[in-house]
């Protein structure tokens, strides 16, 4: 049974005097215990809003969340504010993008980690601080007993992100959501943080939702990948399948636009033309159609439905054909 079942999750933002904006439009996916699932897409595709909706962190006023988020048979969207607060930090953890601004600048690292333990495990401050030092040690912060009495600005960017991971994992949640955890870090640190996350979720059996725009992160970490575009899942596949044979033109474009070390000198990168602002509503078309090299007339007239193509889920009228033609797929 899945640990987390997201069904038809829809988030609509109401702005006074403006058209309501659908940021997430019927997203469904499962996360199995211990599995790492990627949510990939460019800025504004709804990946962060999806994670905030799962955590129940969207503002009550202005954002309407519908659908269901089943976590071990409890629908998180039906929980009261207090019930959800008890779960956050204990059953569900989250790591954010910018480690500096996500830490309280006026409180020491130790107290911030201890705060979670005091809150959910009823520890005394003293015991929680000892435990906090152990947690910092576990996430690879050297000299943790000195670090617990330091302030966020005294730590390096990588160490701050390690501290945030320690906070999120302090109470051993069964699900961790990492929202672009490496975006604000430089490349060498990114690799360290990713391997730390990978190791921690493997050791503890924590399921991980990895939110990123970086396909390199996905390739190194995720078991299953959901590609989001305009608030909908356009392609879902197992990692190797996705990278070997991207079928949706958007996924294909994303992969083609990554510079490769083994590419011949002077080869040009292939950007996806246009930007998110070119999107058309999903109501009666494919939102990606204006930017899509494969677009047909039907793409601008009929909303593509999610369909299973073998083991992958695809939302496209005219997917990219794999190099080796697969006859069994033509019949689907």
């Amino acid at each position: 049974m899945a640990l987390l079942e997201v069904r038809d999750l829809t988030v609509v933002f109401q702005r006074r005097g403006e058209q309501p904006f659908t940021a997430v439009d019927g997203v469904s996916f499962d996360v199995e215990p211990g599995q790492t699932v990627g949510l990939v897409g460019e800025s504004g595709c709804g990946k962060s809003v999806t994670s905030l909706a799962i955590m129940g962190l969207l503002p009550k006023r202005g954002a309407t969340v519908t659908g269901s988020v089943k976590f071990e048979d409890t629908d998180l969207l039906r929980l009261s504010g207090n019930q959800m607060r008890d779960r956050r930090g204990r059953d569900l953890g989250m790591v954010f993008q910018d480690p500096l601004s996500s830490l309280n600048p006026v409180i020491t690292i130790g107290v911030q980690v201890a705060e979670v333990l005091e809150r959910h495990q009823g520890m005394s401050r003293k015991k929680a601080l000892t435990e906090a030092a152990g947690l910092l040690d576990k996430v690879g912060i050297p000299d943790p007993n000195r670090r617990i009495s330091e302030y966020p600005h005294q730590l390096s960017g990588g160490m701050r992100q390690r501290a945030l991971i320690a906070m999120a994992l302090a109470c051993k949640p069964r699900l961790l959501i990492a929202d672009e955890p490496t975006t604000a870090l430089d490349v060498t640190i990114q690799a360290q943080i990713l391997s730390l996350l990978k190791g921690l979720v493997q050791d503890t059996g924590t399921a991980l939702i990895m939110i990123t725009h970086d396909l390199g992160v996905v390739a190194g970490l995720c078991d299953e990948v959901n590609v989001l575009y305009g608030g909908r899942v356009v392609e879902r596949a197992e990692r190797h399948e996705l990278f070997a044979e991207p079928r949706h033109p958007y996924t294909h474009g994303l992969l083609a636009s990554i510079p490769r070390l083994d590419a011949p000198r002077g080869e040009r990168l292939m950007p996806i033309t246009g930007s998110v602002s070119d999107n058309i509503p999903w109501d009666s078309a494919c939102a990606f159609a204006p930017r899509c090299p494969n677009a047909l007339d039907v793409c601008r007239e009929v909303t593509p439905e999610q369909e299973w193509r073998g083991s992958r889920l695809l939302r496209c009228h005219n997917p990219v054909q794999p190099a080796a033609a697969e006859t069994e797929e033509a019949s689907v």
Partner: peptide
């Protein structure tokens, strides 16, 4: 961000106000 992060850890509202926002 740090208030959002505190909320994501289930910190109670009173503590968020007096430990995270006011200082």
């Amino acid at each position: 961000d740090h208030v959002l992060a505190a909320r994501s850890l289930g910190v109670k509202p009173g503590q968020i106000v007096f430990r995270h926002m006011v200082p």
